[in-house]
Amino acid sequence: MRNQDRASRLLGLSLLVFVVGIGDTSVWFPFSVTQGLPELTTATLTASGYLTDAKSVTETERTRVATERDAFRRFARLVESISVSEDTHTGPLVFAGGGDSGTEHLCTVRNAYRETVMNVPHFEDEYDENLRESLTLEFDDHLATALLDGQQFSPLLKNTVLVQATAARESREKLLDGIDDELTSLENARKRLREHDRAVERAMKPRRQLRTRSVPTLREYDAILREDEDRCEQLLADRQHEIHRENRSYSRSSKPALQQYLYDALDVTYPVLATVTERIQDIRGQRRLIRETMTNQR
């Protein structure tokens, strides 16, 4: 996540397509899943650390994006306060003329950028850019050149800086909306998985040794697990819908999806889907063990 460029971080997050298995059909996602365990236990029916890690990195990224948004807001206010003479050149962004006051104003703009955008706590760790690189990536090469190499801070240049700073702030506000939706989705998934855990634990805690159980009792266990499997598959479908909804407004196909952007440094790109898929695979392994036990008792 740290080494992605600005455009990938802030714009064009692509839609995703997932294959969700129903009933006894397979569930496929682009990551490995654990196999069914050799004996029936509810210890594996707890949400994996994927969700904890996902929440942590998402909250950290939200703080950073909000800090950057506020920095661009402060930068724009500082630029707005810089006066320009109305009789200066109003044509294309210019580099000559303007005298001492023009270069002084440009220096003021550059200092304002350093003190706001480049002064956020995570700037060095996440970007490690010099002034020219940062201005070019946040705005464009032409504006960066005008601010660094020009001689005049014209009304046109001032307005262009304000427009670009506002766009940078708004892009982060848009990203924050997506991050907030993702945090809500993570918490909802965690709650639903905990509810599943409690339900299965209550039903199966007194009945751990399968070989000593009758066939009717084993059928009852299988029915409990089948209900949990159905609930997990519904959670997968709901999460798929949420991912599509979260990414629909970031639909440029050349850019990463929101989850890819957030979870690039984690072991899995889609932590909720990975967690629930592991759960389903575990349940199916346990159900196979129950059916084998019933077969052996006949």
Rank of each mutant, 00 (worst) to 15 (best):
Q151L: 05
G23A: 13
D238M: 03
G285C: 04
D5L: 14
R69H: 02
D197K: 13
K174I: 08
Q4F: 10
D197R: 15
A167C: 01
W28C: 02
E220D: 10
F29D: 12
T88E: 14
I290W: 08
M1C: 07
E246Y: 04
M204A: 07
L135D: 02
E173W: 03
A165H: 04
H142E: 15
G21F: 00
G21D: 08
E242H: 12
V33S: 11
A76M: 06
T58I: 02
D5Y: 00
D197L: 12
Q286T: 01
T25P: 00
D222R: 13
M294T: 03
G150S: 01
F18N: 14
M118G: 04
Y263P: 04
F31S: 09
F72D: 01
D53I: 00
R6I: 12
I82Q: 09
I283V: 12
S249E: 13
R9C: 10
T277I: 06
Q164S: 03
R2S: 15
G49W: 07
F72W: 13
A54L: 05
R192W: 07
A47L: 03
K255D: 12
L143G: 01
S56E: 15
P155E: 07
Y221E: 09
A71I: 07
G91A: 01
Y263W: 09
R252H: 10
M118C: 11
L193Q: 09
E59L: 14
V276C: 12
D70V: 03
T166W: 05
V33K: 12
V94L: 07
R279V: 06
Q286D: 12
Q151A: 12
A199P: 04
E233K: 07
C232W: 00
L262G: 09
S214R: 07
T116C: 10
N247F: 06
I179Y: 10
Q234L: 10
S101H: 00
T46E: 07
Q35E: 14
A165P: 04
D228K: 10
Y50G: 05
V120K: 03
